[in-house]
Simulated scan of single mutants.
Amino acid sequence: MKWLPLVLVLACAGCVALPAPQIQVTAPEIHGRVVTTDGTPIAGARVHFEGDDDGGTASAADGTFVVPKHHDLVLVKVFTPCPVYDYPTPRRLPGALVVEKPGCRRTVVALRDHYAQLRRASGNLHWKGSHWKDPTVKVGDVVVAKAE
């Protein structure tokens, strides 16, 4: 009963909040390979989403890596006359992939064009990852220069 006043206020404002627990993909799985400027694979390079300093993965002996997709739990959907809001608000898509290795320069790979390819392939023209059929992005070779 303690929720009744909130529900009435939201309903009068044209909003409806419904419990709708679901897992949303907030970042796709990223595949690629870390190489030097001459094409030699780099093992042990740390690869992670920008701003996610605790997550990510390390490149294998052949330089390949797979950064796992991120998931967020959404408990409530709030329907308004225009948009639909999720609560708690899922994370935004990371804008870049970061590759770090001692003795090498930090390399940042922008992901916007890769997301556009993923959206076109899935038929979803919005950024929302919950509707992606196969949230996997292949960035190819990431060239990392040696530090001077």
Rank of each mutant, 00 (worst) to 15 (best):
M1F: 13
V7G: 01
L10M: 12
L10Y: 01
L10N: 03
C12A: 15
V16H: 03
L18Y: 05
A20C: 06
P21G: 14
P21Y: 15
I23E: 14
P28N: 11
P28G: 12
E29M: 09
I30C: 10
H31F: 02
H31V: 00
V34R: 12
V34Y: 10
T37F: 03
D38I: 04
G39M: 11
T40P: 08
I42E: 05
A43L: 00
A43T: 00
A45E: 04
A45W: 03
A45N: 01
V47L: 04
V47H: 11
E50A: 15
G51Q: 08
D53R: 05
G55F: 05
T57N: 05
S59E: 06
S59L: 10
D62M: 09
T64D: 03
V67C: 00
V67L: 01
V67S: 00
P68D: 06
H70Y: 07
V78I: 07
F79Y: 08
T80I: 09
P81M: 09
Y85I: 00
P90K: 01
R91I: 00
R92G: 09
R92A: 15
L93F: 15
L93D: 13
E100F: 05
K101S: 13
K101H: 14
P102D: 14
R105E: 13
R106T: 14
T107L: 02
V108N: 10
A110Q: 06
R112K: 12
D113P: 00
Y115S: 02
R119H: 05
R119A: 10
R119D: 02
A121V: 03
A121L: 09
G123H: 12
L125K: 14
H126N: 12
K128H: 03
S130P: 00
S130T: 05
H131P: 07
P135N: 13
P135E: 13
P135C: 13
V137R: 13
K138V: 01
V139E: 14
G140V: 08
D141A: 11
V142R: 01
V142N: 03
V142L: 03
V144R: 02
A147E: 11
